[in-house]
Design a protein around this nucleic acid. Structure first.
Ligand SMILES: Nc1nc2c(ncn2[C@H]2C[C@H](O)[C@@H](COP(=O)(O)OP(=O)(O)OP(=O)(O)O)O2)c(=O)[nH]1
Ligand SMILES: [Mg+2]
Ligand SMILES: [Mg+2]
Ligand SMILES: [Zn+2]
Length: 581
DNA sequence: GCCGTTTTCGGCCCGACTGTTTTCAGTCG
């Protein structure tokens, strides 16, 4: 975790503690809002503190606490609260249907300060003695405990993507359902999702039809307008699905509500209040009179701000931008003319060129970069030079009669000393050189390796720059400012790896890199036929990073792309020559 | 604890579902 993430965690824990103690709900919200703001910062929090820059949502007090953290690595108020409240309480409050009030009653009446104690007391039936605790409430706590144990925390979005699309298709087969949109973190394209939120337009009560689906395991709640249930994924894990049903005149406002984020919603509703309206999922209202709500566009129009694409609705300043009509036209899937990272049979992929072409045609591409691994990456079938040259000839032959052009490329290892895995005479004959690092020693800082490699004029793209894996590996130790500065100086492109386990660069790093004026490429890292669809993930990540098609080289036609690569290489060669005078 | 184009107090998003209540509190979205 970086500073920002640690401070966000501390603020959230302070909020939990204060909630348990029954403190002012608005103070608690201030802590949570601040945590969210800090997590969404592009730079390390210390940078803003040093520049004496005001951050919306962080006032004098929290600013002092941040400074305290930066100096000492701790926040006294946090430490005090932690010593006052047993650790188990925080865990208990994470149980579904058990909030701060219930946790407090359990603690005060029976000293419940751990999951273990809660389990024991549940067995005895003693909880009935607490005022406000009935049989059903106790059953619900048991149910919550079960859910707590069997539900996964969060999923990488791609891990559940196809399941969700399948379920959506099922819904569209139900008679009476006129519109379906998957909302929530899925529509905003967060890299991980906690549940699935689906908005449905229907005039008829369709809940019974929905609940017939064989993968629905358990109904959690069912009312007039919404249903929640557990759904069995194809990987046998369970995910919660929340369905909200709404009618036509509220479709847009409901979609806004259900897409979130929560903090974005609050800011939008604040804006509505400022302008004398009320905004909720049913529409925009003036003195109880319906003004708008049929479509999202209509609501934004009436509020006199620019439409905000779902991917950037994260309360990171997008509403300010929208007020000034300064949200750029974001890149779209249709702008993409090719995939810039695909592996074939020549390394660890399973596809031959014909299969790759067939997939590319389905995606409407002009080109695909064949980026097989280089010789040192033995575990991934890295090609020795002989294999590479043979493959290059095969690609040339293939291209003579192909509908999709395959770029002669490679994902070349950056070795420990920053040199590249193939000599320059080989690299210069590749259409496109991706350079990347796969072997990193524990705690190694890879900045210098990158900088050295980027002195090589044939390095066109740095692939999956930070090396992070969603939910499973932190980014490598790396000075991003130095990397981005060098990329900008050397006209080296940075990859947005679209594989759902990587998504690297991610949105925040894209925003940061863009400030340095670098360009981006998107590659799916496909190793088989089922990998190509992930291009949409890369595009959505680019959109979260506010990129336009001008920022992304996949929007260039084949000819433009090759020219651009050539231009950048010549620029680097010239630069290299002049610096060696 | 934060914020402010009626500036330093007074408000802070708004609604659904459930259970225990008989008019609302708690939890969640
Ligand atoms: N206005 C308002 N909307 C909320 C609130 N909580 C949730 N929502 C809306 C915005 C959320 O994106 C949407 C779905 O809620 P979720 O809890 O599923 O959150 P989300 O999907 O954003 O993230 P997740 O990945 O599921 O954790 O409901 C709230 O307190 N107020
Ligand atoms: Mg959700
Ligand atoms: Mg949800
Ligand atoms: Zn790689």
């Amino acid at each position: 975790m970086n500073n920002n993430q640690i401070i966000a965690k501390i603020f959230n824990e302070i909020a939990d503690a204060l909630e348990f103690l029954g403190d002012n709900p608005f103070k608690i919200r201030a802590y949570r809002t601040a945590a969210n703001v800090i997590e969404g910062l592009v730079e390390d929090i210390s940078v803003y503190i040093q520049r004496n820059e005001k951050i919306y949502g962080i006032g004098e007090d929290l600013r002092e606490k941040i400074i305290e953290f930066l100096r000492t690595g701790k926040i006294k108020k946090h430490e005090e609260l932690l010593s006052k409240i047993p650790k188990g309480i925080f865990e208990i409050m994470n149980i579904p249907y058990v909030g701060p009030k219930t946790a407090k009653l359990l603690y005060e009446h029976f000293g419940v300060d751990s999951i273990e104690k809660l389990k024991n007391i549940l067995e005895t039936g003693a909880l009935l003695k607490i005022k406000g605790f009935g049989l059903k409430k106790i059953e619900n706590i048991k149910k919550g405990l079960e859910l707590y144990q069997k539900l996964s925390q969060r999923f990488p979005i791609g891990e559940v993507y196809n399941d969700i699309i399948n379920f959506k298709n099922y819904l569209s087969s139900i008679d009476g359902i006129e519109k379906i949109e998957i909302a929530g973190s899925f529509r905003r394209f967060k890299e991980t999702i906690g549940d699935v939120d689906i908005l449905i337009l229907s005039k008829r009560d369709v809940s019974d039809d929905i609940l017939k689906h064989p993968r629905i395991k358990e109904i959690l709640a069912k009312g007039e307008t919404k249903i929640s249930f557990l759904y069995g994924l194809s990987n046998n894990k369970l995910i919660q699905i929340d369905i909200r049903v709404i009618d036509e005149k509220s479709w847009g406002s409901a979609l806004m509500y259900f897409t979130g984020s929560k903090e974005h919603n609050i800011q939008m509703r604040d804006l509505a209040i400022e302008k004398g309206y009320k905004l909720n999922e049913y529409g925009l209202f003036k003195d109880e009179m319906y003004i708008a709500g049929k479509s999202e566009e209509e609501v934004f129009d009436k509020l006199l701000i620019q439409y905000i694409p779902p991917e950037i609705r994260e309360a990171r300043g997008e509403i300010e931008l929208a007020k000034q009509f300064k949200i750029p036209k974001l890149i779209d899937f249709n702008d993409i003319k090719g995939d810039l990272q695909v592996h074939s049979r020549y390394s660890d992929g399973v596809m031959d060129f014909w299969e790759i072409e067939a997939e590319a045609l389905k995606m409407n591409y002009e080109y695909v970069a064949i980026t097989d691994h280089s010789k040192s990456l033995k575990v991934a079938g890295g090609m020795d030079i002989e294999d590479l040259l043979k493959r290059n000839e095969e690609i040339k032959k293939f291209n003579r009669n192909s509908k999709v052009k395959l770029l002669i490329s490679a994902e070349v290892e950056i070795l420990n000393d920053g040199s590249l895995d193939y000599p320059d005479e080989i690299l210069k004959n590749l259409d496109l050189v991706l350079a990347s690092i796969h072997n990193v020693k524990k705690d190694e800082d890879i900045t210098q390796r990158y900088l050295k490699a980027m002195d090589n004029p044939y390095v066109d793209i740095i692939a999956h720059p930070t090396g992070r894996l969603v939910l499973s590996r932190e980014p490598y130790k790396l000075n991003l400012d130095e990397l981005f500065k060098k990329a900008s100086e050397r006209k080296i492109i940075l990859e947005i790896n679209a594989h759902y386990n990587r998504l690297d660069l991610n949105d925040l790093n894209i925003l940061k890199a863009k400030q340095y004026g670098v360009k981006f490429s998107i590659g799916t890292d496909a190793h088989n036929r089922n990998g190509f669809y992930m291009m949409i993930f890369g595009v959505k990540m680019a959109r979260k990073g506010l990129l336009t098609k001008e920022d992304v080289i996949n929007s260039l036609s084949l000819i433009e792309l090759l020219e651009y690569i050539k231009f950048c290489r010549e620029y680097r060669i010239k630069q290299f020559a002049s610096s060696n005078k």
